[in-house]
């Protein structure tokens, strides 16, 4: 599965993606695929276009030209919230929690696309709504347990330590039952110990069958857990392969040393 050939269609396909801001060509003609069930990393020196590409995949801004295809569907005309129901979840580099809400409530918002209760349903609170709410709470607790934070369920999310906030964000993303999870520099702001735990957590997530694509700066984490790596430099794809292949690529070494 991990080393499936390039002729098998990937879960996520980036085809000739281009994006410019004013005169800056931030992403130029980038193509790659993410196979289902892997941990794939997107790395590159500062200003390589990683974050831009990440934002393109998550629908924050539209592509200039090219296609992003998820599960054989073009995501070009989809709104951000539609992408979530299609099965793409994300986390933020600086952790974006709903700080005044409890940890459990944060994860419950993550279940938004997998639940149905509407405005009138909430007012009437009929048995089916109550059942849905109960199941949602059970699921949310399950995901909190999965990331090891069941004990903090009723704390205010903003009061948690930063490392835990990141875990809440991951639980919230998992709650939307994604097929692909995008993580924007998940190790940023974590200490070595926390980074190690994060690596374990990501492997567990992959073992659930969720594909992971991470943009990462921390090379040691990337090399250790990624099944496949794409290297960007100055907006273009520089190299692609297993961690070992990428590490041996002279272009990559030159780009990193030069930077």
């Amino acid at each position: 599965m991990k080393n499936s050939g390039p002729n098998e269609k990937g879960l996520l396909r980036i085809e000739n993606a281009n994006k410019s801001f004013g005169g800056v060509h931030a992403v130029r003609d980038v193509s790659f695929e993410v196979q289902e069930g892997v941990i794939q990393a997107l790395i590159g020196p500062n200003g390589a276009g990683k974050t831009t590409l990440f934002n393109l995949i998550t629908g924050v801004f539209p592509l200039d030209t090219g296609h992003i295809i998820f599960n054989d569907q073009d995501t070009g005309d989809k709104k951000i919230f539609n992408l979530v129901s299609m099965g793409i979840a994300r986390t933020f580099q600086n952790v974006e929690l709903f700080t005044g809400m409890t940890v459990l409530e944060n994860v419950l918002v993550g279940l938004h696309v997998r639940t149905k209760c509407g405005f009138l349903g909430a007012i009437a609170r009929l048995p089916n709504v109550q059942r849905e709410e109960k199941e949602a709470r059970e699921k949310a607790m399950h995901w909190l347990d999965f990331v090891g934070l069941a004990h903090a369920a009723n704390n205010k999310a903003g009061d948690l330590a930063f490392g835990w906030q990141r875990s809440v964000e991951i639980a919230r993303a998992l709650a939307s039952e994604p097929r692909l999870m995008l993580l924007d520099e998940p190790a940023a702001g974590l200490n070595a110990n926390e980074t190690g735990q994060l690596g374990d957590l990501m492997r567990q997530i992959r073992d659930l069958g969720v594909t992971l694509l991470l943009v990462e700066h921390d090379m040691s984490l990337t090399m250790e857990i990624a099944d496949r790596i794409v290297v960007l430099d100055q907006g273009a794809k520089l190299s692609e392969g297993t961690p070992r292949e990428v590490q041996a690529d002279e272009k990559v070494i030159a780009a990193y040393l030069g930077a």
């Binding site: 998550t58 709104k79 951000i80 919230f81 979530v84 129901s85 979840a89 994300r90 933020f92 974006e96 929690l97 709903f98 700080t99 005044g100 809400m101 409530e105 944060n106 419950l108 918002v109 993550g110 279940l111 938004h112 696309v113 639940t115 209760c117 509407g118 405005f119 349903g121 909430a122 007012i123 609170r125 709504v129 849905e132 709410e133 949602a136 919230r172 993303a173 939307s176």
Partner: peptide, 30 residues
């Protein structure tokens, strides 16, 4: 009615928008 709304899926989504509209739409709230 408001109390029920606030403590429901709909109300949570609304409060989420209040704290971070960006994150709310990124977890699938229209």
């Amino acid at each position: 009615i408001c109390d029920r709304l606030v403590n429901s899926r709909v109300g949570r989504a609304l409060r989420a928008i209040h704290y971070s509209e960006q994150a709310a739409s990124a977890v699938g709230v229209d």
